[in-house]
């Protein structure tokens, strides 16, 4: 396949008009048509129906379109990033973080992008899945890390990043600090702080065990919840991927473990700016352990 052929096909998918697509690609119509025919030969069948007033994608055309778009975007992004580096235009990287999903795991990739594109603006937005999905669809966010337990529209591409587990965050003098791990039974006579951004581990624990746990609502950012743990109000169940500063300590929750897969999501078919595209590539290329 040739880059130009794929570019012509993707333009044709968007215009569904040979004349207009050829003009947009700055190429004569015979050359444009030949390129599409070559691509059809290589991909093993017609990609479009050509009727007098109507151009439509065939089933093959529809099935390869998203993949060719992604490949074209990747080709453009690899080049644009290299170019953005030399022009030093301001770049931005806007990442959504779902409930209880910290930035610690992706900090390395974010730093790498910031080093490659000095002056890039980095923006994190912590919110519920629905709000983050809406922000992505409205082009307010480039990508988001979301938990597997949420309704993802088909328009979002998703890649598994890592699986996190619950830890109990305890004040330094807490009796459970003496144990290597805590179980659901250990938490029966404890107060659990639960908020909209803590990742829902307490609610899942209650559902998984059927225990009636003592929950204290505490909405707002995780940092404030940790202040309340330090003050002795209760225990927080948070992701083991969050960094918890001393003097607070963490103990893994065993029995049940409450694993949660975290997905990297982006809107399908929408080209990302060089900073965001390289961030997504860095995340997809590596294995998060």
């Amino acid at each position: 396949m040739e880059l130009a052929q794929v570019r012509y096909f993707v333009t044709l998918c968007r215009t569904l008009n040979f004349t207009r697509a050829a003009t947009q690609c700055n190429v004569t119509q015979p050359a444009f048509t030949r390129a599409i025919q070559k691509l059809e030969t290589e991909l093993g069948g017609p990609l479009l129906f050509r009727e007098r007033n109507l151009t439509q994608l065939t089933e093959l055309g529809r099935s390869v379109r998203p993949h060719l778009e992604a490949m074209l975007d990747a080709a453009d992004a690899a080049r644009d990033l290299a170019a953005a580096r030399s022009t030093r235009l301001p770049a931005s990287l806007k990442i959504g973080l779902g409930p209880g999903i910290g930035a610690a795991s992706i900090a390395g990739a974010v730093s790498e992008v910031a080093n490659a594109l000095p002056g890039a603006n980095i923006h994190f937005e912590e919110s519920g899945p629905a709000a983050l999905i809406e922000a992505m669809l409205n082009d307010m966010l480039d990508c988001a890390l979301l938990p597997e337990f949420c309704d993802l529209p088909d328009r979002l591409n998703r890649w598994p990043m890592y699986t996190d587990r619950a830890v109990a965050v305890l004040p330094p003098d807490h009796e459970l600090v003496k144990q290597n791990a805590v179980t659901a039974r250990d938490l029966l006579d404890q107060t659990l702080l639960a908020g909209e951004y803590c990742g829902g581990f307490s609610v899942r624990l209650a559902a998984a065990t059927g225990f009636s746990l003592r929950l204290q609502r505490c909405n707002g950012p995780t940092s404030q919840m940790l202040d309340l743990v330090a003050a002795g109000l209760g225990i927080a169940l948070l992701s083991d991927r969050l960094r918890v500063a001393a003097p607070l300590t963490t103990r893994p929750l065993h029995d049940p473990e409450l694993p949660r897969q975290i997905l990297l999501t982006v809107v399908a078919g929408r080209p990302l700016n060089p900073a965001a595209a390289s961030f997504v590539k860095l995340c997809r290329a590596q294995k998060f352990v």
Binding site: G44, M71, L72, D73, A74, K281, A285
Partner: peptide, 20 residues
């Protein structure tokens, strides 16, 4: 290097689709 989504491969003209 990970040529994610074969972008550089496409630009170099070395990518093909595995026939069904």
């Amino acid at each position: 290097l990970s040529d994610v989504d074969c972008g550089v491969g496409l630009a170099a003209g070395v990518v093909f689709r595995i026939p069904k």
